[in-house]
Design a protein around this nucleic acid. Structure first.
Lengths: 231, 231
DNA sequence: TGTCCATCTCTTGTATACAGAGACGGGAGC
DNA sequence: GCTCCCGTCTCTGTATACAAGAGATGGACA
């Protein structure tokens, strides 16, 4: 049964093989085991998961429509390599989308949600002070997800998740920027404050600034690398 | 070859049968030939297009990920019926996304693009005065697409297109609202003016208002119908 | 007569076989 | 020695056959 699927989190009960494969490949992309540009060969994937090509094809199609994989008729699929200018555009949209989430969150979060958000933020502070990078970034992701959920707008959350997924493989590049963790925490601080105080525009501005700074760091990184296509 | 595909626009040269089927079904949904809630039976679709179930399944999967179709494992696919509160949320996001497009457009549109937008707007005025409803709404769509393209941000355009596609089957309901065409034109007028003048925030506000009004009309329509699920 | 259970059928999910389009390499010609 | 063309070969796209789950239907029992 599910032992046929080698990697990744276990899928839901009612899920099909295709879904399990999709989750596994998705995780491989997130974690960098599959780098952008890597070819996805149907036959070898079929062998790896010990199933036929049919569900593999379906999984790949789903990934194509999630934007994680690119595919051209009769020329196979590769993990989507993002062109630089497109990635900058995506960050640009991301900053607005996340800002929007924060604006809604400031208006709509329940007291429980606000407390949960504050708790997440406090946790990340502990990780920051202990210099636990990986833990900090894990909580960081939860933080953003909490704000997104706080928007109480599902389509908006889906858009945010989609953008996040497509940018995820590139986020690790900013890990090593000097003082990034400390600055990031300070920016989060502004966001939390505005949301807890129920100030939509301040929350929007703070979150937008936070994500925009990531664009700066990213383009800075790219200009050092000098490449037009990151892989 | 392509004569196997009965309906819709002809697909690209390199396209697969699955792509052709997807386009055909997409158009059926847009034009209301397939109403939300309609079951998509793989076998009968295969017969209709005179191909096997395999490409049909791929087409359906693509539609699922475009949000036009919903699917549960082993229970088939139906044209996505939107829950009311979800639809309102989508309009809510749409107003922000289109507002964002307008904001970017005001900053980034070239002189040629601005002239083309103005020309579209003038054309719609003629249709309005001649009371040519269908023509007006066709140009209306082009108008919105022009603004989206003017944002010069592809991911943003994709998001806007996706939302538009999912809302398209429901838009026709506002056709008959009293004075809607005239009001709509006036709202467009504000948008055009702001964009031509290069005023991002005014363009954002005008476009946001324009789409928000559609939400009002829509909810008004729904409250008259009284249903929780529109079909 | 109503309800519950078993079976049956219909539809989807998966496997496998086949066909066709590009890619790649070898050989021939310049 | 280099280039171009043709054949082969691999991989994707499609068809078809098979398996399995979900809902329907009918019968039996209360």
């Amino acid at each position: 049964m599910s032992d046929r699927i080698a990697a990744g989190k276990t899928a839901d009960k009612g899920a099909t093989r295709a879904d399990e494969v999709r989750l596994a490949i998705e995780e491989d992309i997130f974690l960098g085991r599959l780098r952008p540009g890597t070819r996805l060969d149907e036959e070898s994937l079929a062998q790896r998961f010990n199933i036929s090509r049919t569900p593999i094809r379906e999984a790949i199609l789903q990934l194509v429509h999630a934007g994680l994989v690119e595919k051209q008729p009769r020329q196979g699929a590769v993990v989507a390599p993002l062109k630089l200018h497109r990635m900058v555009q995506m960050f640009e949209v991301m900053s607005e989308i996340e800002g929007l989430c924060a604006r809604f969150a400031a208006r709509r979060m329940s007291e429980e949600e606000k407390q949960a958000l504050k708790h997440l933020h406090d946790t990340s502070k502990a990780h920051m002070e202990a210099r636990e990078l990986d833990a900090y970034y894990a909580v960081n992701r939860s933080f953003h997800e909490a704000v997104q959920a706080g928007s109480h707008n599902e389509p908006l959350q889906e858009i945010a998740r989609g953008l996040f997924a497509r940018l995820a493989p590139y986020r690790r590049y900013q890990l090593n920027h000097p003082n990034r963790v400390k600055d990031s925490f300070t920016e989060h601080d502004d966001v939390v404050e505005a949301i807890l105080a129920g100030e939509p525009e301040a929350a929007y501005a703070a979150m937008r600034r936070h994500v925009t700074i990531q664009i700066d760091i990213f383009t800075e990184f790219v200009s050092i690398m000098g490449g037009n296509e990151i892989q």
